[in-house]
């Protein structure tokens, strides 16, 4: 934990530089290099960011899950700050995943929303982590609030594998299944390159945003500790 605290600002600077390069490259590859998909046409280009955002959302909620477990085990409030950061960014990414999916669904399926298994489980995931923040906004005891939040963070993560495997578990869904390893021969090489670069760009942006958010929660706890110390004195 101390190592992370020490190098947070350096990580942020390095990640910003890498993010600018990768984002520019991904936009260029998506709109200038990758060919138009024959059936879906231009709306298919949403896929290059929709998929990486969904996977990064899982990663963010996994961090929340691990940090919640660590908080319940160690009792250190800094783990609660890390869990809250993971949950907050996870909710933002889940929102972007739902919005970009809806904007892709309208021209391709003819509707913004349908109660397809993956869409439904994603919406449930979004609601669970929204409730996490409703709970955190309550002016309770800080330790008690962190404990309840950790429990929701752990239980909420159970929905992530359900979201991921929903298309295989419930066969009546209309959401497409994308398996890069298996289908890589079916995807145009330039489309695959655009997807990989977009994935790298979103991952770097995630690390950047996450490090900034964790720094914010550490500073917040530092200020609170300072106030408590001055009150004791």
């Amino acid at each position: 934990m101390r190592f992370i605290e020490k190098y947070l600002s350096t990580i942020t600077l390095v990640m910003t530089a890498i993010a600018i390069i990768l984002v520019t490259a991904s936009i260029y590859l998506i709109f200038m290099v990758a060919p138009l998909e024959k059936v879906m046409g231009f709306p298919q280009k949403i896929f290059y960011y929709h998929v990486p955002i969904a996977i990064t959302c899982y990663l963010s909620l996994f961090i929340c899950f691990v940090a919640s477990c660590m908080f319940l085990w160690k009792g250190n409030l800094k783990w609660d700050g890390v869990a809250a950061s993971g949950a907050e960014i996870g909710v933002i990414l889940a929102t972007l995943m739902l919005i970009s999916g809806m904007l892709w669904g309208k021209p391709v399926w003819g509707t913004y929303w349908t109660w397809d298994p993956r869409l439904t489980t994603s919406f449930i995931l979004w609601l669970i982590f929204l409730s996490y923040f409703i709970l955190r906004s309550q002016p309770n005891n800080e330790v008690l609030r962190a404990k309840y939040s950790a429990v929701i963070g752990i239980i909420g993560f159970v929905d992530v594998p359900l979201v991921h495997w929903s298309v295989k578990l419930w066969s009546r869904g209309i959401h497409p299944v994308i398996d890069i390893d298996r289908d890589s021969t079916g995807i145009h090489p330039e489309m695959l390159t655009a997807l990989k670069v977009s994935f790298a760009a979103i991952l770097v942006i995630f690390i950047l945003i996450f490090s900034i958010r964790v720094r914010y929660s550490f500073l917040k706890s530092e200020l609170q500790n300072g106030i408590e110390h001055s009150q004791v004195e």
Binding site: I27, F42, P43, Q44, K45, I46, Y49, H50, I53, I92, T95, L96, I99, S100, L103, W104, K106, P107, I205, L208, I209, I212, R213, R215, Y216, L219, K220, L223
Partner: peptide, 27 residues
């Protein structure tokens, strides 16, 4: 639809970074 999706994604990322940095400088 594709343009709208990319505009929303970038607006949210950029807005969030600005908001958190603003909160950090205040703290």
């Amino acid at each position: 639809y594709a343009i709208a999706a990319y505009v929303i994604i970038w607006a949210v990322f950029f807005g969030y970074i600005v908001l958190i940095n603003h909160k950090i400088s205040k703290l």
